[in-house]
Computed example of a mutant assay.
Amino acid sequence: MPGKDLAAVVGRGLIRRRELSILVVCVAAGIYFAATGSGFTSTENYHTIAQFVAPWIIIGAGEVMLLICGQIDLSAGFVFTLTPFILTSFTDDGMPLLLAIICAVLVSSLVGVVNGLIHTVFNLASFIVTLGMAFFLEGMSLIASDAQPEAAPASGWVAHAFGLSRWSELIWALVIVAVMQALLTTTRFGVNTQAVGSNPTGSAESGIRINRIKIVNFALCSGLAGLGGILDGIRVGSFDPTNGGNETMFLAVASAVIGGTALLGGSGTILGALLGALLLGIVYDGFNLTGVNANAFDVVLGIAIIAAMLLNVYLGKLRGRVGR
């Protein structure tokens, strides 16, 4: 029957494309809060959700690449915090804003290079390396800012392009997702990243320079975190040493995991991280509109991460059966 055939096609699509399952959950959550929360479907509320999710998407895109190759960066949230103050140090010396942004992002990428080198040269777990780097960067942020917020650039086309315009931060996030998804799925670097995460020994024996792949991905993650910090700070209008940190990093990682990226490496999707962040943003915003205690968000987040991992394992087995 046509109805059963359509259901079978949709079912196979949900199994093969891990993004589709989280998309269905996003749509269902949006419909629920639109029906129960006053003002959910307004343009202003959509902008509020965009403000929530854009930093998680940007950092999450870098975390996906690291998770796929079997690593993680716990310092990304503090790169997010520190980079705006690196930017102000450049502009205070008279550097043009656009050049200062480029240099600040390059400096943030160097943090990732250092993480990658320590991990690969000394064979230390990335969890430990980036945990130590997180504490170091947190202290540097407080020293660089004297523990006080600083005014962000508030005029000129560069400031408008890098966060001051109403939707610019979300546009940057979507562009980054498109570029990183293409990098992951259509380039040799992306294929090698997946190979390193799924079979590092075999990758090394086949000639893939696994250490170089890891270091580049660490640099990408830190660079994106730095750019995200600049965009978010300019949007808000100030650079705050308490912004970002562990909360932003964990929400970015949660977005990646909920979106279908395996914590053990070998598989993942940038588009899934976008949808994972969107789901978290919808839930967080929906709770606020419906008057649910904000503390309950952490409960839902914990359940969502565990459920996402269980679902990923189950769908992985189904994909294997469908493939055969």
Rank of each mutant, 00 (worst) to 15 (best):
W172I: 00
G320D: 13
Y284P: 03
I171T: 10
I128T: 12
D73A: 09
L301D: 01
G245P: 09
I31F: 15
G70I: 05
V177E: 00
L66D: 01
G112R: 03
A195Q: 00
A307R: 03
G245L: 11
G228V: 06
G291P: 11
W172R: 03
I101D: 01
R18P: 07
L97C: 06
T186F: 14
G259V: 09
T81P: 05
A219T: 05
G77W: 04
V196T: 09
W172A: 06
G265N: 03
F85S: 02
V179E: 02
L301E: 06
T186M: 13
A273F: 04
G197W: 00
A182W: 13
L263N: 07
A277P: 03
T83N: 04
I303L: 15
D92G: 12
T261E: 03
V299F: 14
L231F: 03
G233H: 07
G223T: 03
G228K: 07
L106A: 15
T81K: 03
L110D: 12
A125L: 13
L289T: 08
D285T: 14
I128N: 10
S238R: 09
I102V: 15
R188D: 06
A8L: 15
V158Q: 06
L310Q: 00
I210C: 01
G60A: 11
A76E: 00
R12N: 14
A161I: 00
S89F: 05
D146W: 07
W56R: 06
D93L: 15
D92A: 15
F52N: 03
L227Q: 04
T43M: 12
G223N: 01
Q194E: 10
F239L: 09
I59A: 06
A254S: 09
N211W: 04
E247H: 08
T88N: 08
R188K: 08
I31E: 14
L14T: 12
C69H: 00
I234V: 15
T187D: 01
S168M: 06
A307K: 01
M309N: 11
V105L: 03
A147L: 01
L106W: 04
V175I: 15
L224P: 00
S109L: 09
F33R: 01
Q194Y: 01
L264V: 14
I258V: 14
A8G: 07
E205K: 13
S267G: 05
F122R: 13
S141N: 08
R17D: 12
K214E: 09
G116Q: 08
G156R: 02
R166H: 11
A134K: 10
M95D: 00
R17C: 06
L280A: 05
L278Q: 02
A178N: 01
F239K: 05
L251W: 01
F218P: 06
S89R: 11
L274E: 01
P241A: 10
F122V: 09
A307C: 10
I305G: 00
S109M: 15
A159V: 11
I49T: 02
F218K: 02
L174H: 08
V216L: 12
L66F: 07
A28C: 11
L310N: 05
A28Q: 07
A144K: 04
R188V: 01
Y46G: 13
A50S: 07
Y32L: 15
L131P: 08
F250N: 06
I234W: 02
G11P: 10
T290P: 08
A29F: 09
M180I: 14
N288Y: 15
N123M: 14
